[in-house]
Design a protein around this nucleic acid. Sequence first.
DNA 1: TTGCTAATGCAAATCATTCTCAATAAGAAG
DNA 2: CTTCTTATTGAGAATGATTTGCATTAGCAA
Lengths: 152, 152
Amino acid sequence: MSESNDRLRDVFRAAGRRLTPQRRLILEVLEESDEHLDAEALHDQAKIHDPDISLATVYRTLAVLKEMGLVEEHHLGEDHSHYEAVRDGPHYHFTCLGCGKVIEFDTPLIAQVKQELSEREGVRVIGAHLHLSGYCAQCQAKKAGGQGSNEE
Amino acid sequence: MSESNDRLRDVFRAAGRRLTPQRRLILEVLEESDEHLDAEALHDQAKIHDPDISLATVYRTLAVLKEMGLVEEHHLGEDHSHYEAVRDGPHYHFTCLGCGKVIEFDTPLIAQVKQELSEREGVRVIGAHLHLSGYCAQCQAKKAGGQGSNEE
DNA sequence: TTGCTAATGCAAATCATTCTCAATAAGAAG
DNA sequence: CTTCTTATTGAGAATGATTTGCATTAGCAA
Ligand SMILES: [Mn+2]
Ligand SMILES: [Mn+2]
Ligand SMILES: [Zn+2]
Ligand SMILES: [Zn+2]
């Protein structure tokens, strides 16, 4: 029982950082969530497991996790940020202007764009955020049909 | 000389809004700038021509112009928004993480992505923001020269 | 176990953006 | 041109998100 069986701790050590219960918790909440949480929602979730965790720690941890490449920040139309744990392949987002729903999708075309730009401009592309917006199928139907509920 | 020779005023009237000197000025500043200005920089520019224009009016006008499709808002890595006048064709952005330089580019591939997604998900895509980040040619050179960082 | 110091909780501070409200002025009507 | 309605403005307070200072705690290397 003396082996370092803790991958996450190793990752933090490699980055010269300490792994605290709060950090582990925040990352867990993000990894288990299928939504794009904002800081406050994340804080609420985390408080279920650690009622004393502070919002400041949430923000500080998000910054750390982002720096370590474990978490991504998104600006999805709202005035504040949303976060999600980084998964295997990249993916992109569509936000419905009517109901706020977010659809995730992937496409090899973005890799092509990166390639094109790298060659054309001599840049090295690290990150790619594609954010489409418009109206989802349901919201289109709602609009076309008649009039009724208006949410924002 | 009695013709309504004022296109912009017509656009505003058609939108049921009033064209004020402040609004005209703000749009002019944006159209004449080749940068992606934030609200404060825009305010500073505008104050050169109208020292009394308020920051609140800048924000309010940006909202109006955005709604009218004359201006676009961008989140370019910074924690605040940047704005630019909408031009003919769409274009996308690359930000250098080293020096902050923004490179604009276009590619037909994004239209393909929009098409793909529309068909696959039945959504109607209105807007598309692609934001790449990484290091520009100069910043790569700077990095390679100084330290022993070796990659790819 | 000890010691150094990174990380935390709390509250105050900052920063960007929005709102309130009285005064002003755009533009339609006459 | 004058009048009238009310959208728009400037100033500053208010808000909401994120950050920071500081005293205390606790991770982890030795
Ligand atoms: Mn996602
Ligand atoms: Mn641009
Ligand atoms: Zn919808
Ligand atoms: Zn650069």
